[in-house]
Simulated scan of single mutants.
Amino acid sequence: MYPTYTDLRASAPNASTIAQNDPVNGADPFAPFRQSLAIDDPNLDVGWCLLPAGEGVADDAPQHELLVVLDGEINIEGREGGASLRAGCSLIVPKGGSFRWSVGDQAKLVFMRYLAEDAQGGAGLVFVDPKVPLSPSGSPAAELLLSDTPSCRNNTLYATPSRHWSAGVWDSTPYHRAPMVYGHYELMHILEGSVRITDDQGRATTFEQDSIFLVPKGAKCSWLSEEHVRKVWGILRIPS
């Protein structure tokens, strides 16, 4: 993993590397198909699921997880109902969640898993609605802003009891923020608009609609958005 940010779409493995299907895995049905980034943190696993045609069952999911479909389609059936998740769709699976899945051809997903033993207790799957209503939220610190204060909104769709790991939807009017050191890991899937991320070494990338990237804890990056931005986010923030 690059020490500042990783473009999870651009660096995704080729589908030809899909492992042999093994649908019988009640703890983690995606285990044979996962490829992880090298992250030096025992609490976090981020990477890709390269799923072949097949089906399986997840009984008592072992970790909290955010899934974002990169390519293809996956059908999910849980106690809360079901959905066909196409490219751009997201799903939150709490620890202990159960569901059936099936793929007709192939599907490629990005995942973010919180590995700590932090039980939610009966929480169900959350099918992320990208147009979910949002409420006003905090703006970047005034001392970091290089533009007018933006209007930000948020909806936290899921959080663990400790609130160390959470996921939701956020949007904002345009703004420019000076580089700051991230005290958390954040996965971002851009739903609308674009943002330019620049690190303290001058590496810069513009992430447009459908981009998915990870900013790790300790990275120092700036933010420049010149249009309205809406994103799905997953954050791991554990106090030192």
Score class of each variant (00 low, 15 high):
150 P>S: 09
93 V>C: 10
156 T>E: 15
154 N>I: 09
123 A>F: 06
111 F>N: 02
47 G>R: 02
196 R>Q: 13
96 G>K: 08
69 V>S: 10
32 P>S: 00
219 A>Q: 03
92 I>N: 09
233 W>K: 03
78 G>R: 06
63 Q>P: 00
26 G>S: 11
219 A>D: 00
7 D>Q: 07
172 S>G: 04
192 E>N: 08
119 A>Y: 05
231 K>G: 06
192 E>M: 08
175 Y>H: 15
31 A>E: 06
32 P>I: 00
12 A>W: 05
94 P>L: 09
11 S>C: 08
129 D>S: 13
143 E>W: 03
115 L>G: 05
129 D>R: 06
124 G>L: 12
239 P>T: 06
91 L>K: 04
48 W>R: 02
5 Y>G: 07
156 T>P: 00
152 C>E: 03
42 P>D: 11
5 Y>M: 14
4 T>H: 15
134 L>Q: 03
34 R>E: 07
25 N>S: 11
26 G>V: 04
164 H>C: 13
227 E>M: 13
161 P>W: 06
25 N>H: 10
128 V>D: 03
90 S>Q: 10
146 L>C: 13
67 L>M: 15
34 R>V: 04
154 N>Q: 11
142 A>Q: 12
80 E>T: 08
75 N>M: 09
132 V>S: 14
70 L>A: 06
202 G>V: 04
221 C>D: 00
115 L>Q: 08
45 D>L: 13
132 V>M: 09
61 A>C: 10
59 D>N: 10
198 T>I: 10
229 V>W: 10
158 Y>P: 01
65 E>S: 12
123 A>K: 14
113 R>N: 02
36 S>T: 06
132 V>N: 07
223 W>C: 09
172 S>R: 11
